[in-house]
Design a binder for these strands. Structure first.
Lengths: 151, 151
DNA sequence: CCGAGTCAGTTTACTTTTGGAACTGTATCG
DNA sequence: CGATACAGTTCCAAAAGTAAACTGACTCGG
């Protein structure tokens, strides 16, 4: 199977992954959420090869997750900024980070804490139900395929 | 950079990705949450090459995300089941799926809907603050590095 | 004006990973 | 006995990734 085929799959996860389901891509997004915007800054922060970085940035722009916009002329230089679509990935990143905090953190605990501007507290992300507001785990959910019910 | 180095990074996302940050791995997990457990079943469902599937399953077992347990003797056969650590990835998967639903679904809308056993309703996942319960977006969060504050 | 430095890539040569198909080995079924 | 099921393993070619050097527009200091 090729990754272009995945895009056409009738599965939101497969489609999401065809856009961002790659090791480097997710790390690039992490940096983007930490305000990294320029080619050299991504390279320095990640240790990614320049060729691969070029490819990933192009793909993310093509996917509408980054916007490539000039930040100076003479010489013309561009920076990469998250679009609304890109910002929408934040919950997924946060969920992954908090899984990492819980299951694979070192002895010193999570390296980064997150503070909620709204209430001023350090927090963990909680996934909850849009309808009743209760927290949701894998065991609380039934997946139903369009049309018929399914496991 | 090699992916073994990533594991040692002082970043929960990097560590999480060193375990599951790969296109196939996430799709394997999707199937696992849909009760797929056997080698041939994963292969048929995914269209992954047998070699790559073998590798990924071994890595997931080594990471403690899958447990490999016999389901028959004569001939001895094993199945792959999610551990608690693996089940803990559900919020991240769900967040990614709902991002896919919102941003990359086809004209017919999301292929799979999720129903909450607790309240019986179809729902979307909402990421919220563990302290105040309010929904959280990228703009509501300040990341603070261990020790000192940071952007 | 010259040489060094900055930034964003592109090119080249080499290594690693992946895909796909065939092969292995145990066991059951008819 | 031959066919089928299952879970891999092995082989080779193709694709993707790496590091390092190169390009090209421009700025700055002297």
């Amino acid at each position: 199977m090729k990754w272009t085929e995945l895009e056409a799959a009738d599965c939101s996860l497969a489609r999401a992954l065809s856009a961002v389901g790659d090791r480097w891509t997710l790390l690039i997004l992490r940096d983007a959420f930490l305000k990294v915007r320029r080619f050299e800054a991504f390279e320095a922060s990640l240790g990614i090869s320049r060729r691969t970085l070029t490819e990933r940035l192009e793909a993310l722009v093509a996917a509408g997750i980054f916007e490539r916009r000039p930040y100076q002329e003479k010489p013309l230089r561009h920076e990469y900024r998250l679009t609304e679509k890109g910002l929408g990935l934040y919950p997924a990143l946060l969920a992954l980070i908090h899984w990492g905090d819980e299951w694979v953190a070192g002895p010193e605990g999570p390296p980064v804490r997150h503070r909620h501007k709204g209430c001023g507290q350090q927090f963990r992300s909680v996934i909850s139900c849009s309808e009743c507001g209760e927290p949701v785990t894998a065991r609380d959910v039934i997946a139903e395929r369009r049309g018929a019910a399914a496991g």
